[in-house]
């Protein structure tokens, strides 16, 4: 095939593709489900306190190393769902917002002070705070969207924040990585203190 013919055919394909754009067609496949999924996906990203706490779980997991590295992110969403159920069905849980701010302070402190407690203590601590996060999310979960799509988006988003935290935590493998992580933990603690102070002074 000559180069001239090849160029001619490529032009034909390009023109054909451009012509497709002119089609006055209606394309509406599964828009409702995607909407529910995205609403759920964006929900955990809406609050800096939630995002920081979940990032801290991932970073602390990476700091502790295996098996905490993956046990904490596995435990957090499951316990968070229990808190979510309590919020959805309206069970009273006191001091939720303060609990969330405390989770940012405590988890940030663990990173900043390079605390490495036994695995069960770390899991219990993370699970305790997961209840508050789950409860707050559960209260806000809407009932009118597709439950599965919304929940899938919500859980996936949470998992990706944990994964981001784990990836940040791998900084520890660098020569000064531990210092960088501890500095990051200190920043998280300061933000947590600000959030707690805002709540107490409000």
């Amino acid at each position: 095939m000559s180069r001239r013919t090849l160029r001619f055919e490529r032009t034909g394909v390009l023109v054909g593709a451009l012509v497709l754009v002119l089609l006055p067609s209606v394309a509406q496949a599964h828009t409702g489900s995607i909407g529910g999924f995205w609403a759920g996906f964006l929900h955990p990203l809406g609050g800096i306190d939630h995002v920081l706490a979940m990032l801290a779980v991932g970073i602390w997991g990476a700091q502790l190393g295996p098996p905490a590295l993956w046990i904490l992110p596995v435990a957090f969403p499951m316990v968070m769902a229990l808190g979510g159920v309590a919020g959805i069905i309206g069970l009273p849980v006191p001091w939720v917002e303060l609990g969330i701010a405390m989770s940012v302070i405590v988890l940030g402190s663990m990173i900043a002070l390079d605390q490495r407690p036994p695995l069960w203590v770390a899991a219990l601590l993370v699970a305790f705070f997961a209840i508050f996060h789950g409860y707050a999310h559960g209260l806000e979960l809407p009932g009118q969207v597709g439950a599965v799509e919304y929940s899938a988006g919500f859980v996936l988003s949470t998992g990706l924040i944990h994964l981001t935290g784990i990836l940040i935590g791998f900084v520890i493998k660098l020569p000064s990585g531990l210092h960088i992580l501890r500095a990051g933990g200190t920043v998280i603690v300061i933000i947590g203190l600000y959030l707690a102070a805002s709540l107490l002074l409000a």
Binding site: V74, A75, P77, M78, M80, A81, L82, G84, V85, I88, I89, G90, G138, L141, G143, A147, V148, Y150, S151, A152, F154, V155, L156, G159
Partner: peptide
């Protein structure tokens, strides 16, 4: 763990 979490949330949403 995600499947368990989603199922739990869906069940609660349907109950509500």
């Amino acid at each position: 763990s995600w499947i368990a979490t989603i199922t739990l949330l869906v069940s609660a949403l349907e109950l509500r």
